[in-house]
Amino acid sequence: MQNSFYREIINDHNLRPMHKKEIEGANAEKRGVNPSCGDDITLKLRVKDGVIEDGGFTGDGCAISQASADIMLDMIIGKTEQEAERLSEIFRRMITGKVSDAEIGELEEAGALIDVSHMPARVKCAVLGWHTLDAIVQGENTEA
């Protein structure tokens, strides 16, 4: 993560996260852990009629895992679960280096994590929040 503009975005979300907090009335919760490096977050969402009304996370981990979760919540709050899943799918493809410029644009600030595609050791950190989101959304879909 040596691109200084991207670094600033990551640092900002890591040091001053907007969504690292408990939320009112959460009805979906999942813990996400990277056992090898110790990133450990709990993601909570309040979902109504398929729309993510609010979300937050707690826990700790490296700057990339924390910033990525915070940026993710910025993007998905107010969106439907389907839309959040679509962004998650694009994000994962960006991290594995298989994405178009237009799609990177859709990812807004999450595009700052594109450098992770050259850093295999950090992939798990970057996708932890998204992975946890998928587990919540897909878990609920199974129940429906």
Binding site: M1, Q2, S36, C37, G38, D60, G61, C62, A63, I64, M119, A121, R122, C125
Partner: peptide, 20 residues
Amino acid sequence: VHPHDIAEILSADGICVRAG
């Protein structure tokens, strides 16, 4: 600063350490 972030910055400076 999380140890993985420290190791990444050290790596950018050519310094090889373990984190975890």
